[in-house]
Design a protein around this nucleic acid. Sequence first.
DNA 1: GTACCCCGTTCAATCGTTTGAATCTGAGGC
DNA 2: GCCTCAGATTCAAACGATTGAACGGGGTAC
Lengths: 341, 341
Amino acid sequence: MTRGPRAGTKRVTLVDVAAAAGVDKAIVSRVVNRDPTLLIRPETRVRVEAAIAELGYRPNLSARSLRTAKTGILGLVIPDFSNPVYAQIIAGAETAAVSSGNVLVTGSATGAASPAAYLDLLGNGRVDGLLIAGGAPSTQEQRILDSLDIPWLLVNRRDRKSRRYVILDDAKSARMAVEHLVELGHTEIAHIAGPKTTDTAQRRLTGFTEAMSEHGLRTPASRIVVGEYTMDGGAEAAAKLMSSRRRPTAIYVANVAAAVGVLHQLSALGLSVPGDVSVVTTHDTELASHVMPALTTVRMPLRELGARAVRSLLDTPPDAQVELLLADDFTLVQRESTAPL
Amino acid sequence: MTRGPRAGTKRVTLVDVAAAAGVDKAIVSRVVNRDPTLLIRPETRVRVEAAIAELGYRPNLSARSLRTAKTGILGLVIPDFSNPVYAQIIAGAETAAVSSGNVLVTGSATGAASPAAYLDLLGNGRVDGLLIAGGAPSTQEQRILDSLDIPWLLVNRRDRKSRRYVILDDAKSARMAVEHLVELGHTEIAHIAGPKTTDTAQRRLTGFTEAMSEHGLRTPASRIVVGEYTMDGGAEAAAKLMSSRRRPTAIYVANVAAAVGVLHQLSALGLSVPGDVSVVTTHDTELASHVMPALTTVRMPLRELGARAVRSLLDTPPDAQVELLLADDFTLVQRESTAPL
DNA sequence: GTACCCCGTTCAATCGTTTGAATCTGAGGC
DNA sequence: GCCTCAGATTCAAACGATTGAACGGGGTAC
C-alpha cells in the first residue's frame, strides 16, 4: 500500500505551516478558516496558502473539536439497514448534511448489545446532533437521550414525550390510496393496518377511515385487520381478512413489506391480483416495482423527510419545539396491482 | 425537551471529579481507563468512583482523541444504501466493531458532490480506519486514499492496486449454483454475468465456466450474456438470451437484483419459472424470498464478511498485506425458481 | 516633534485528557 | 536516629487548534 505524500514523517501542524510561511500560527489558522475579520497583506496570504499546499497541511479535527466543542458530524440511528424505506431517508439526510458543511454518519442498533448502548456510544461527544428514526424509543433509550448534551430529534415518528419531530402526512397517504380505489369503482375496501403502537400505523388508519366516510362508505370492524410491518404479518392479516363472509374487492395495506406478504397470500388462496382483489400500499420502494404484480403505491417524499430533519436539527435551538408535517409531493404510482372493479 | 442531569451547568471534567474526590485528576484518568499499573488504595478508588457517578462524568472524546490520536470510530463507505446486500455486511461489521471497543459508522457517496469528496470528509481524522465496499475506486478516489494517514481496506472487492481486501469466494458460489442445476438434470445452462469491469462478476463467471466443464457441459458464447447488476440489466440480458436459437432450460444469474429482472422478463415472454426455465442466483437477500416465484439462491456469509473486514482492519499493520478469501458457510437455499428438468 | 490611529501581525491562554516522571509518606532495617 | 524503599499520589508537559487581546511601526494631523 502506498502512503501519504510524506509517509513516515510527523503530521503537519499549524506550527509547521507558520514556520514555512514565516508568520505566526494564528494567521494560518485564520486563513484556513476564512476568518472575515482577518486583515492580511495579499502577499502574506499567498505565502501562507503556498505553504499549506506545499506541506499538504490538514487540520487536526480532534484539536479543533476540543477547542470549538463541535465535531462537524451528525448521527442518524436507524433500527435496521435492511428496511428499504431508510435508504431514501438517509440519502436526503446525507445530502442536506454535506451542503451545510457537516458529514452524516448512520448507525443501526444491531451492532451494540442494545439500541440504548448504541445511542450512548454515538451520542456522547462524537456527534453534534442525533437523528433518530424508526421504532418508539424505550424508556431506557429515552433516559439516555435525556442525558445527552446534544440536540436530537425524531424522524418519521411522533412521541408524546418529545416535541421535536419531523414526520410525513401518513393520513394523507392513506386518503390518496382510498381515493384511487374509489375512482376505480371499488366500494368494498379493507385495510391492513400496522401495529396499534406504531405512530405511522395510527395515522394511516385515521386517514383511511376518514376517507372512507367522506365517500359515504362503511367500514365494518372486520374489514380492518392489524398486521406487523413485515411480509409474514401481511400474509397473516390477508388470510384473516379473506376468511370473512363478505370478501373485499380492494385492500389498502399500510406498509410495503406487508403488502408483498399480502400478494403471496392472495396467490396462495388462488385469488388473482388485480383480477379478484386490488392492492395498494404506502411507500414506493424499489421492492414495490420488483414484485409481481408490481405494486401500486403512494410515494411520499422520503428524501425530503431526511433533508428537513437535518435542517431542523441544525437550525432550531435544542430546546425549541419542532413539529413538522410534510404533506407535499405525494404521488400515487399506479402499477399492476390495482384495476377497475 | 428535558435535558441532562445538570442542564445549563458546564460540562463535568476530570478536574471537577478530582476536586470532588479530593485527588489529582491523573488518578481519576487512570481509574476511568482502568490503568493496570495504577496503585491505589481501595478507599480512594471508591471515593473516585463515587464522585464520577455523583457528577455524571463523561470523558470528553475530542480531548482524548487529541491526546491519543485515536477516535474509536471506524468508517464504512458504501455506494448506495438501497442495495440490500450491504445491509448484512454492515450488520456484521457493526457487531465486530462494537465488540472491539469501537463504533462503526456508515456513509454513502450520495451525500457529497462526489464519492471522492466523501472519502475526504470522512477519512481525514474523523475515523481510525476506513472500510470501502462496492464499486472500483476511481483514480481520484485512489489518490485520496493514498493521501490518508489511516489504514483502509477493500470489502467484497479486489483491486490490482491494493493488496488489502477481504472477499468472498464468488467462484464457489457460481459452482454451487451450477452443481444444483446439474443435479436437477439440466444441461442447457446459461449465465447472466455482471459487467466485465466488476471484480465479483469476473470471479462468478470463472466459477461458472469451470463448473460447466467439470461436468462435461459446453457453454457456447451465446449462452453467456452480460447485464448490469440491476433489475433492468437482468431483464435486458434475459431478453437477449431467449432470442437465441437454442433456448437454455436453466440460468445462473450473477446478481439477485438482476435475477428479479430476469423473472419479470421471462414472465413477459410467456415463459413459466420453473416450468420452462429454472433460475438460480447469488446472494440470499430478503428480496429473493419476496418475489414470485421465490428465488433459489446461494447464500454467502455476508455478515461474516463485514466482521472479518473489521477485524483485519484492526489487527494488521497498515502496510501489511491482507488477502482474505471466505469460502465457508455457503448454502444453496432452494425455493420455487428451480425444478427438475 | 509628539500624539494618535490603524493596519498587520504576534502573544498567550485555553479546550480536557493522557502519561512519564517526580514527590511525598510511613514503615522497616540497622 | 538515619537511610532505604515501596506504595500512593501529584506534577507538569504535551496533543493542535482557536481567538481575544496586545503589540509594533509607519503615516497623518496639528
